[in-house]
Amino acid sequence: MRVPRWVAGLRRGWQIAPMDREDLTFTSGDDEVAAWLYRPAPADGPVPCVVMAHGFSLTRHDGLARYAESFAEAGAAALVMDFRHLGDSGGTPRGRFRIGEQRDDLTAAMRFARSLPGVDPDRIVLWGFSFAGGTAVTVAARDAHVAGLILVAPFLDGLARVIGTVRRSPLVAVRVLARAVLDLAGRHRTIPVTGRPGDLAAMTFEGEAEGFAAATGDGSPWRNEISPGVFAVVALHRPVRLAARLRCPVWVARGKRDVTVSARAIERLADRAPGAELHVHDVDHFEPFHTPAGDVLAGEQVDWLRRHGLVGPAPWRKPSVGGRRQP
C-alpha cells in the first residue's frame, strides 16, 4: 500500500496543518474502498479516530465534511468512507446494496484506522447516519474494542419501516419486493432510491425526495439508483435488538420531524444500551447535513467525545456507563 505523504512527513518530523485531508484507499473483499482521512494538528501522542459512514446510498461528499472537520479541530482523526459499489469506491455492479457487505466494509475501515501511524487503536469511534447507524450498532455489538458510537438518526428497525411502507403504498411495496427477489436471485436491477409518494422507489415517504436533493447537492457522485435486494430481508434487520450488548458509550440523536426511521426504536436503544445518551432536535431526517442544525449536532458530539476522553492525546480511560438523557 502506498505510504501517504502525511505519514512520511510525520516520520521526518514535518509540521502538518490542522484539517489536512488525504485521499486513501483500503481493501474490503475484492474491492478498493475510497476514504478521506482528516488529521488534527500534531499531538504529543497517538490520537483517536472517528470512522464515519453515510446512510442509504449516500456518499462521503454529502454533508460529512463539517462533522469530520469538527473532530479534527478537537484533536481526533476522522476516516470518512464510501461503501463499496457507491460513491468513489470500487465494486461492480454499481448501486449494489447488501447489508452484510456494508458491515464488512465498516469492519475493514475500523481495522484500517487502527493500523494508521499516529492513531490510538484503543480509541476508535464509529459514526453512522441512518442505515449506517444501524450497521455501526451491529459492528460494535460484535467488537468489544470499539471505544464509542455516534449515531445520527439511526435506522434500527426494518420491520417498522416495512409496516409504514405497506400502510402508505401497498402496491409499491409489492412491486419493490418482486424486484428485490429477482435481485437476490442474481438478476441485478436497480430502482430509484427516492421519489414522490406512490412512485416505484425505495424511499417515498413525504419529504424524502426533497431531503435527498438537499443533502447531495452539486458535485456529489450520488446516484438515484440502488439495487432492491435488501428489501426482501429488511424486515428482519433490527439492530435495536442488540442495544443491551453494547459496552461502549453511545451518543444518539433523533429528529422530532423525522419520518424515515423509527423514533420508538431509537428511544428503545437509548433506554437499553448501558452507556447511551439521547439527544432530540427539531429536524427532519436530512437536515443535519444541509442546515445550521448540523453545526449544533457536531458541537454536541465533540463535547461528548471530550467528556468520555475520546478526543485529544490524553491516555484513554474507560468511561463510566450510565449516560444522561437530554430533552
Results as ranks from 00 to 15, higher is better:
Gly75Phe: 00
Arg114Asn: 13
Arg167Glu: 15
Pro40Asp: 01
Leu278Ala: 05
Val33Phe: 11
Gln326Trp: 15
Val283Gln: 12
Glu287Thr: 02
Asp122His: 10
Met1Asp: 12
Thr107Val: 12
Pro221Met: 10
Phe286His: 03
Arg96Ile: 11
Ser130Tyr: 08
Arg268Phe: 09
Ala144Ser: 09
Arg5Tyr: 07
Ala144Met: 07
Phe289Leu: 03
Thr135Pro: 12
Gln301Glu: 08
Met203Glu: 02
Pro315Lys: 05
Pro197Asp: 11
Thr27Gly: 05
Ala201Asp: 11
Asp30Cys: 13
Pro327Asn: 15
Ser89Met: 00
Ala202Arg: 04
Gly275Gln: 06
Arg257Tyr: 06
Leu177Ser: 11
Glu206Val: 14
Tyr67Ala: 03
Ala293Asp: 11
Pro121Asp: 11
Asp183Val: 15
Gly229Glu: 00
Gly217Phe: 09
Leu184Ser: 13
Val261Leu: 12
Phe71Lys: 00
Phe289Tyr: 06
Glu69Lys: 07
Arg142His: 15
Asp104Ile: 13
Gly219Phe: 12
Asp31Thr: 05
Ala68Tyr: 01
Ala180Glu: 03
Ala215Trp: 02
Ala140Leu: 03
Ser227His: 06
Arg306Val: 09
Trp251Ser: 10
Gly91Asp: 00
Arg179Pro: 07
Phe26Ser: 05
Val296Pro: 13
Arg142Gln: 15
Arg196Gly: 06
Pro46Asp: 01
Trp127Tyr: 04
Val311Glu: 04
Asn224Arg: 02
Leu149Arg: 09
Gly207Arg: 05
Phe26Met: 02
Thr194Arg: 03
Glu300Pro: 12
Trp127Ile: 01
Trp127His: 03
Cys248Ser: 06
Glu267Asn: 12
Ala201Asn: 00
Val280Arg: 15
Gly195Ile: 04
Gln102Tyr: 09
Pro327His: 14
Ala132Tyr: 04
Thr165Ile: 15
Arg123Tyr: 11
Ala8Phe: 10
Gly55Leu: 12
Glu32Ser: 04
Cys248Met: 03
Pro274Thr: 06
Pro48Phe: 02
Arg196Cys: 10
Ala314Asn: 01
Asp122Arg: 11
Leu24Ile: 02
Val152Leu: 13
Gly219Val: 10
His61Arg: 14
His285Pro: 13
Val193Ser: 03
Ala77Glu: 00
Leu64Gly: 01
Val302Asp: 07
Phe56Tyr: 07
Arg272Asn: 14
Arg12Phe: 07
Leu126Thr: 04
Arg21Met: 12
Gly134Asn: 11
Gly128Tyr: 05
Val321Pro: 01
Cys248Asp: 03
His279Gln: 14
Gly294His: 01
Pro93Ala: 07
Trp14Thr: 14
Ala160Asn: 13
Phe112Gln: 08
Val176Met: 02
Gly229Asn: 05
Arg223Trp: 11
Leu151Trp: 08
Arg39Phe: 12
Val234Asn: 07
Pro93Gln: 06
Gly164Ser: 15
Gly148Thr: 07
Phe112Cys: 07
Gly207Lys: 04
Pro170Phe: 02
Ala141Trp: 12
Val152Glu: 11
Arg257Gln: 09
Val181Arg: 15
Ala293Thr: 09
His237Ala: 10
Arg254Gly: 07
Met81Ile: 14
Val80Leu: 04
Pro249Ser: 08
Trp304Ala: 07
Ala43Met: 13
Ile163Phe: 14
Phe286Lys: 06
Gln102Leu: 00
Val166Thr: 11
Val311Trp: 01
Val261Ala: 14
Ile191Val: 15
